[in-house]
Simulated scan of single mutants.
Amino acid sequence: MEQAGPYLTAAVSAYGGAVLARAEGAAADSTANLGRRILQTVWRRRTEPEQAALEAAV
């Protein structure tokens, strides 16, 4: 176990880092998708001049 310990620790750390990176990526994708849906909803409810102003702001 003394010899395998460092290797196991490294493997578990790498796996944990990969899981964390995937979770962060999924959260970022979810947040971006929510923002995109909100903008699309707002966009559809605006007149053309308002859409141009919204586009400039974004």
Rank of each mutant, 00 (worst) to 15 (best):
L54F: 01
L20D: 04
G5T: 13
Q51C: 01
G35D: 04
R46E: 11
S13I: 05
E48T: 08
R37L: 12
A11C: 11
V19R: 15
R22Y: 11
S30M: 13
A57K: 03
Y7L: 15
A18G: 07
A23R: 10
E24V: 06
R44E: 05
L20A: 10
S13T: 04
A23L: 13
V12I: 11
P6M: 11
A23S: 12
G25R: 15
P6N: 10
E48A: 11
Y7S: 12
T47R: 07
I38F: 01
A21N: 06
P49G: 02
L39R: 04
G5C: 10
A10L: 03
Q40A: 09
E48K: 06
S13D: 00
A21P: 00
T47I: 05
E48Y: 08
G16S: 06
A14T: 05
E2C: 07
W43V: 01
T31C: 09
P49C: 01
T47H: 07
E2M: 08
D29Y: 11
S30Q: 15
I38L: 04
G16D: 07
V12H: 08
A53T: 02
A4Q: 13
V19E: 04
G17K: 06
L54S: 00
A10D: 10
E50R: 01
A23Y: 08
Q40G: 05
R45N: 13
R37Y: 10
V19P: 02
L20R: 14
L54E: 00
G25V: 10
E50T: 03
N33W: 11
V12A: 09
I38E: 01
V19T: 15
E2Y: 09
L20F: 01
L54C: 02
L20G: 06
